[in-house]
Nucleic acid binder design. Structure first.
Lengths: 201, 201
DNA sequence: GTATAAAGTCACCGGTTGGTGACTTATCTT
DNA sequence: AAGATAAGTCACCAACCGGTGACTTTATAC
């Protein structure tokens, strides 16, 4: 048996992702993670001082959250020149595409919303800083942020996040297909439709 | 000790609601329910043949789901005379108000989306029949159901459901207050804003 | 009043959970 | 080569989980 702390840490972090993808957060525990990593669970305490910190390490991997560039596109300055409605549409759709590629991130978001414990709180901390940066990027001028438009934008984001969560178990939601690409195209069209009314006041 | 099966059953059903309200579905188990009901857990098996059926009994109480009248208003026929966008607005806002009064129902919806087991599947069955009736009521003519509008309507419903779920733990979401009435007024305005573009094509 | 079926109690089962102490073994420094 | 430090193993803990069998107690039907 080769002894290698770095490798063991990496295995534990990878095991978190495996379990989240396979069983969801319900199966996430010290025993399960250690078993999946092929490592003794005592190392979780020695190296990470418990599961919450291991989960924090997992949440801080580079590709866990999309970068601002991935959400906003390469030319962030060009976005700020668009009317507000178009800007909202752009960032909401960008966020949708970015998150659809990250099923484990969706799993974390879901869990964060459901339960309130040491593990979820650490994850909420990580996401906090990330989310604020995006808003600052898109709406540098606070006067542009109408309360109602902000509410609508967040409602749309909350909506597709919830649909992504349901998509893992259910093939459809209220007549909208969640397991086909065309179903998600309709959702994207719905978002565009909603954003159209923002500039049209 | 008075012996009364009906009362014990009622206590168990009430205990389910208590636990859902207090701890959420994470704390929902045979032992916890029996303890909260002040009743031996063996009665759960004797009277309900297990927790799933007890939960089904809980989900079938009269006031658990809003009635169609509560969502649509008293004059369901008048709604069908409105343009499509107004109809969507009306039913989405009606559903929002109806569900805001039912925190335990939100808890169930959340759980249903998160986990997939015997308990959640029984609850999904109950909700299924309920949801279809509402859609049939509002859009009796299938030709009126544009795919994109349907997607938007479901996106809005999914959105406020997700926000309600988060509201239990977080006071705000992306700058929108979830713990004040004015915050929810902004969300309602956002819904109205989104629906405006439906008829405006 | 007595028999009987049901209501309720209690102790226990195997399994899993998060967590720890004591141990062996490998690697690295001197 | 010897010793120190860290990596990894293992057995065990108390607490909980869902679930069951055997028991006592009460109400009810006859």
């Amino acid at each position: 048996m080769v002894r290698n702390r770095e490798q063991s840490e990496a295995r534990l972090i990878a095991a978190v992702g495996q379990i989240l993808a396979r069983e969801g957060f319900a199966g996430l525990g010290v025993n399960a993670v250690a078993r999946a990593a092929g490592v003794d669970k005592v190392l979780i305490y020695r190296y990470f001082d418990g599961l919450p910190n291991l989960l924090r390490a997992y949440g801080e991997r580079e590709d866990f959250w999309p970068t601002s560039a991935e959400v906003l596109g390469e030319d962030a300055a060009a976005i700020r020149a668009l009317p507000v409605g178009k800007r909202v549409e752009h960032v909401v759709l960008g966020l949708l595409d970015a998150l659809r590629k990250r099923p484990q991130t969706i799993e974390i978001l879901a869990w964060e919303a459901m339960e309130d414990n040491a593990l979820t709180r650490t994850l909420a901390d990580i996401r906090e800083h990330w989310g604020l940066r995006v808003i600052e990027h898109v709406f540098p001028d606070p006067s542009e942020r109408s309360e109602d438009v902000l509410a609508l934008a967040n409602l749309l984001v909350a909506g597709f996040q919830y649909l992504m969560i349901r998509a893992r178990r259910s093939p459809a939601y209220g007549g909208v297909a969640l397991n086909t690409e065309t179903g998600w195209q309709h959702i994207r069209q719905g978002i565009r439709l909603a954003c159209r009314s923002i500039d049209h006041t």
